[in-house]
Design a protein around this nucleic acid. Structure first.
Length: 160
DNA sequence: AGACTAACGTAATCAATGT
DNA sequence: ACATTGATTACGTTAGTCT
C-alpha cells in the first residue's frame, strides 16, 4: 500500500517473471493538464510531450502512453456512438529524433534478447544503465526486434 | 466483485540512415 | 534503389486501483 516496496523486494532472480513498471496514479491537476493538452491535439509531437511532461512532473514516456490509451478510449467511444473521429489534422508535429544505436549497444542488447525476448522492467532498466540508452528506447527496441526476428531466444510469449 | 485504466503486447506503417 | 531499423499508430490484453 505504501511506498516501501510492493512486498517482493528481492526477486528469486532465477524465476524473474512478468514484472511491470509500477503503475502511476494521476493527481487531479495532472489529469486536467493531460486532458487540456489532448483537446488541443490528440497527436502531440515530441516537443509538446516533453513540455507537458515537464509541466506535470511525469516522465515523457508515461505521457506518450497516456495519449495512446486516451486515443483508444476516444476512438472506441466515437465509433460506438457512430460519431466521426475529428482526427485533429493540424500541421503534423515532429517525431522523436531517431536514436542512434551503436554497434556495441546493439551487441549488448542482442545478447540480452537471446536470453529473454520479454525482459521485465528491472532488466530493461539495467540494460538502459549498461547501454546509456533511455529505458523507453530499450522497450521499443525489443518490440521491434521481436516483430522482425521471431523464433529466437528462450522467453516464451506465455499464451496460445 | 466489477469498472476503469496504466502498462504492455502485436501488426502495420512511416521515416531516417547507411549501403 | 534498396535494406535495415527506430518511431508511431490502432487495437487487443494484462494487471493494479478504486468504488
Amino acid at each position: 500500500m505504501a511506498l516501501p516496496t510492493p512486498g517482493d523486494a528481492a526477486l528469486p532472480a532465477g524465476a524473474r517473471g512478468r514484472g511491470r513498471r509500477r503503475r502511476l496514479v494521476w493527481t487531479p491537476s495532472q489529469r486536467e493538464a493531460l486532458r487540456a493538452c489532448f483537446e488541443r491535439n490528440p497527436y502531440p509531437g515530441i516537443a509538446t510531450r516533453e513540455e507537458l511532461a515537464q509541466a506535470i512532473g511525469i516522465p515523457e514516456p508515461r505521457v506518450q502512453i497516456w495519449f495512446q490509451n486516451e486515443r483508444s478510449r476516444q476512438l472506441r467511444q466515437h465509433r460506438r456512438e457512430s460519431r466521426p473521429w475529428p482526427g485533429k489534422r493540424g500541421p503534423q508535429e515532429s517525431r522523436r529524433k531517431r536514436t542512434a544505436v551503436t554497434r556495441s549497444q546493439t551487441a549488448l542488447l542482442l545478447r540480452a534478447f537471446q536470453q529473454d525476448r520479454f525482459p521485465d522492467i528491472a532488466t530493461r532498466e539495467e540494460l538502459a544503465r549498461e547501454t546509456g540508452l533511455p529505458e523507453s528506447r530499450i522497450q521499443i527496441w525489443f518490440q521491434n526486434r521481436r516483430a522482425r526476428h521471431p523464433g529466437q531466444g528462450g522467453g516464451a510469449p506465455a499464451h496460445a
